[in-house]
Structures are given as structure tokens and as C-alpha cells.
Simulated scan of single mutants.
Amino acid sequence: MTWIATLPMYNVTPALAAVWREWLGDVLRTVEPACRIVEPDGELHALWRRADLLISQTCGYPLMHGLREQVQLIATPQFDAPGCDGALYSSVLVTRADAPFDSLADCRGARAAYNQDDSNSGMNVFRHAVAPLALSGVFFSAIVRTGSHLGSLRAVVDNEADVATIDCVTFAFVCDELPELAEKVRQIGVTAASPGLPLIASGTVPSATIEALCESLNQALAAQPDRAKRLRLKGFSALPFVDYERITQLENEARALGYPRLA
């Protein structure tokens, strides 16, 4: 079998995507059997469930909603970004730089943007943050689904929405790679933290190969410090599935407050 590999989550620009691909190539160079890097596409749920998937990165929300039964955890990256603490991360609440909001509470009746229904950083922690403020399950005047964190940022900048939550790692990369976009928004808060986006493998990958991948991750990280700095990578943690139950806990806390969905 020829395995496949792809890193779909933090490619905020083509230039940064190329650096991620180079790093992934180095990770795979010492791992057997053969593996080819494929370009991520819109069918990520199908890709994450492929039997020939050697390594990819997923969001913790789909991981805890059906994906965990079909994959293995390899490692969780530790990023050097504001809002990260080891393998934990949070999302930043942003509004337009000239908007009249200084906190999430100020955004009552405003318009919210989020990336995807199954995003922990763009939807789940946003819902958790809003839940204590909502009245009868409603807080915003309108909800806009944008399809991506970049889309949410642009919706805020273009006055199509007033507030969004952005994965803090994504936002750090936007500050690095797209400073003109970052300068047009202002941070007004931070969400609760949860485990970061894990690297996963198909359940069919042998345990010895998983161990080899873990070793290769660290070798590729140490081989080029400047590249690691560009990717904001500090290291990796071996988190068990039970740690990701924090994501379900945040969801359940919002539901318990009568706020099952962004509204």
C-alpha cells in the first residue's frame, strides 16, 4: 500500500502552505513504507477516514463526533502563538478596528461570523463564550457561515459581520503572513482553552509506524530551526483521546445554559 499525507489546517497563504509541505516531506523521508503528499481539498471528512491515511491534521470537534473510532492520535503540535499553552489553544474574539465593541458582552444584537458548523475554534468555543450572555437562546441579530477563518476575518473587515472567533494559531499566522488584514481587526477577548488540532493516522497504520512518525516529527523540527520558527512550532505532545473530551465538555456547558447553537 502507498500511504497518503496532507496538512490541511494552517495554510493561510500559498507561501506558508509550501513551507508546511516541505516540513512534511522531511517528516516522511525517514518513514517506511512509501507515502505521497496530496493536496487537501474540500472533502476533509472523507480524507480523514481513508484507510491509507498515514498522517494529517484534524479539528478536535469532528474528532470527538465520530472520527475518533477510525483514527489514531500521533501527536498534538505545540505552537509559539499568543493564546497557546503547551498543547492547548484558544480562539481570539475579533471585531473591526473601528467598531464600537470592547467586549463580547458589547456585541449583543450584532452580527457574528463563524467558519464551519463542525469547528471547535470557530463555532464550539464561540458558542461556549456566548452562552452565559444569551437570552432565551439568542444573542446576535444575524449569523454568517463563511467556510474558513480567513473568510470570517474578511467578513468582519468588509462589514458583513461584526465579531468572530479565530483560532489563535491561525490568527498568529495571519499577523505574520497577511499583516494588512490583521491590522484591520481588533481583539476584544479570548475563549476557553482546549487541546489543539491533533495529527492523526488511519486506524490501519501499524503502531511501529506511529512511533517512527513521532520520532521523525521531532527530527524534522530540529533539523531547520528557522523553518520551525516560521511555522511557529515548538514541539509535540502525546495527548490521549480523553484529553479531547474537554471539547465535548464545552459543548455540553453551552447546551446546559440553553444555547445549543450560535444565534
Rank of each mutant, 00 (worst) to 15 (best):
T2L: 12
I4L: 10
I4C: 04
A5N: 03
T6Q: 09
V12M: 00
V12T: 11
L16E: 09
A18V: 10
A18Y: 10
E22H: 11
E22I: 04
L24R: 02
E32D: 11
C35W: 02
R36P: 09
L44A: 05
A46N: 06
W48D: 00
R49H: 10
A51H: 12
D52Y: 03
I55R: 09
S56R: 04
T58A: 14
G60A: 15
G60T: 10
Y61G: 06
M64Q: 04
L67F: 08
E69Q: 15
E69A: 15
E69M: 06
Q72F: 07
L73M: 07
T76L: 12
T76V: 15
G83M: 07
D85C: 06
Y89M: 14
S91K: 07
L93E: 00
L93W: 08
S103R: 13
C107H: 04
C107D: 01
R108I: 07
G109M: 07
A110D: 02
A110Q: 04
A110T: 07
R111E: 00
A113E: 02
N115Q: 12
D117V: 15
D118I: 13
S119R: 06
S119Q: 08
S121E: 07
G122D: 01
V125G: 06
V125H: 02
H128V: 02
A131Y: 01
P132Y: 10
L133C: 12
L133P: 13
A134Y: 08
S136R: 15
I143N: 12
V144C: 09
R145I: 11
R145Y: 11
T146D: 04
T146N: 10
T146I: 04
S148F: 04
H149Q: 08
L153S: 05
L153R: 01
V156G: 02
V157A: 09
V157F: 02
D162Y: 00
A164L: 00
C168H: 06
C168Y: 04
L181M: 13
A182W: 00
V185T: 12
R186M: 09
G189D: 05
V190M: 05
T191P: 05
A192P: 10
A192K: 12
S194L: 11
P195K: 00
L197G: 14
T204Q: 12
T204E: 14
T204V: 08
S207W: 05
I210G: 10
E211V: 15
C214D: 01
N218M: 13
N218R: 15
A228D: 13
L231M: 06
L233I: 14
P240I: 01
F241D: 00
E245D: 14
I247E: 00
Q249M: 07
E251G: 08
A254S: 11
R255F: 00
L257P: 05
Y259R: 04
R261Q: 14
L262C: 11
